[in-house]
């Protein structure tokens, strides 16, 4: 069904209340500040990146590790692997619980891919983050609390969509990642030229989604 939300599936969700320091170091945590870990795999990498960022807004957690797996969840290494492993770290297990609760709620009700051709043959992620958390704001080099459009689609659709999004509103590209990425999608992070301009981010995301649907319906033009 066209533009239907495809709700991500949490494939595994585990806690380590007191992780070994060697493990903490290997996964990018700081053994002097972090004790507990929360680990999650999901079948949608970009939805989980957004959900991890959401967790930093609700609990004293740091996203220490988040990596997409090659070729995406259709080619996963196991039925629990999906296409991403995300790790949050905190000084105490309760913060991990609070962070995971926010993360799971975000995956269930907010961040998701959408069906772009009515058959799930083409999917896209035209997500607008109202206020960036600690994780994505650092990755994007933007102040926390800024709005940002997080746009993902397959190579051709994304390229046409990025162009449409950048022209549709007064936004600028924070980051443009041409294909291939680990999952062979392309990705763009856009934010308003004026700080805090959520409406422009939403207009850009809508234009992106419309362009992707258009490419899916008309792959060739003269």
């Amino acid at each position: 069904m066209l533009l239907e939300p495809i709700v991500p599936t949490v494939l595994s969700l585990r806690r380590i209340p007191a992780a070994d320091p060697a493990l903490l170091v290997a996964y990018g945590a700081d053994p002097t500040r972090h004790v507990a870990l929360g680990l999650v795999t999901c079948d949608q990498d970009d939805a989980l990146y957004v959900a991890l960022d959401e967790a930093t807004k609700h609990a004293a957690v740091d996203v220490v590790f988040a990596r997409s797996f090659y070729a995406g969840s259709a080619h996963a290494s196991g039925r629990l692997s999906g296409e991403i492993l995300g790790v949050i770290a905190a000084a105490e297990p309760q913060a991990i619980e609070d962070g995971l609760a926010a993360l799971v709620a975000c995956l269930a009700h907010d961040a998701c891919f959408y069906d772009a051709d009515g058959q799930r043959g083409i999917t896209m992620f035209p997500h607008v983050i109202g206020a960036l958390g600690a994780y994505l704001s650092r990755a994007a080099g933007l102040p926390a609390g800024e709005p940002m459009a997080y746009l993902v689609a397959p190579p051709m659709e994304a390229t046409i969509g990025f162009d449409a999004a950048l022209k549709a509103a007064s936004v600028r590209a924070v980051k443009l990642v041409p294909p291939p990425t680990e999952t062979n999608f392309a990705c763009a992070w856009l934010t308003g030229i004026a700080p805090g301009d959520l409406a422009s981010c939403e207009a850009a995301a809508t234009a992106f989604a419309a362009a992707v649907v258009d490419v899916a319906a008309r792959p060739r033009t003269r």
């Binding site: 066209l2 533009l3 009700h109 939403e202 419309a210």
Partner: peptide, 26 residues
């Protein structure tokens, strides 16, 4: 929660999709 779901639902309305959208999970 962001407004992305509502945005895409509005786009879907505008594009005149024939089938009704699934109800939102409360």
């Amino acid at each position: 929660m962001s407004g992305t779901r509502a945005l895409i639902a509005a786009l879907r309305e505008r594009l005149g999709a024939a089938d009704p959208a699934p109800p939102r999970v409360p």
